[in-house]
């Protein structure tokens, strides 16, 4: 199992190989767990629920991954975010209130040796994002946080910001472009227009 690619593992999952699912778990749980913990603001029960739902989705809706449409990891992370946002939105509806605290989690963890390389490159990406985000204006930063991490829809954000939806839409476009440009600057322009 260890030598198989993610795509091969997905094919085995289609044939009901539990071991393949366990291998994918071992490979990606740290990412999924960390993401879920952040998006649920450190709530470990909710984090567990999200992780369970993500792997259940992998096990039950097997055929939806299409290698032609992009990397496996991006597909997996998109699923994770969708599940997490669904859960969060459901709860917001229940409570009727809007939690506004961002980025509360500050936990420094020790790392396993074999993960170090991967982690270094992820940390680089993280630094890049944080660096790029610093160049955004205050409203642009708020937009990304509400949209990406808090799971608000654009029209909800328009309401919160008391701005027309069209303004928020173009703000999003500008923000994504600005982030992209800072990314590409830091990676020597290699990504731009790829």
């Amino acid at each position: 199992m260890k030598s198989k690619t993610d795509e091969e593992l997905m094919e085995l999952i289609v044939q009901n190989h539990r071991q393949a699912l366990e291998e994918l778990y071992d490979r990606y749980v740290k990412l999924i767990y960390s993401f879920s913990l952040k998006i649920s603001k450190g709530n470990t029960d909710k984090t567990k629920e999200i992780v369970q739902l993500v792997f259940l989705r992998l096990w039950t809706t097997k055929s939806t991954y299409n290698p032609a449409k992009g990397q496996f990891v991006n597909w997996l992370l998109t699923i994770t975010r969708n599940i997490a946002i669904d859960l969060i939105r459901k709860e917001q509806k229940h409570k009727g209130t809007i939690p506004f605290e961002l980025d509360e989690m500050q936990q420094i963890q020790d790392q396993q040796l074999e993960d170090v390389l991967q982690q270094v490159s992820r940390n680089l990406v993280k630094q890049q994002i944080q660096e790029a985000k610093r160049h955004l204006s205050e409203p642009q930063q708020r937009l990304i946080n509400l949209l990406y991490w808090e799971g608000y829809s654009l029209s909800e954000i328009a309401e919160l910001e008391k701005k027309p939806l069209g303004t928020i839409k173009s703000r999003l476009h500008q923000t994504l472009k600005k982030l992209r440009n800072y990314f590409s600057k830091e990676t020597g322009g290699a990504r731009h227009g790829k």
């Binding site: 767990y33 960390s34 991006n74 936990q107 790392q111 982690q119 944080q130």
Partner: peptide, 10 residues
Amino acid sequence: QSLFYEIEEV
């Protein structure tokens, strides 16, 4: 998609 990686790995 890379916004995902703004996480603390735990």
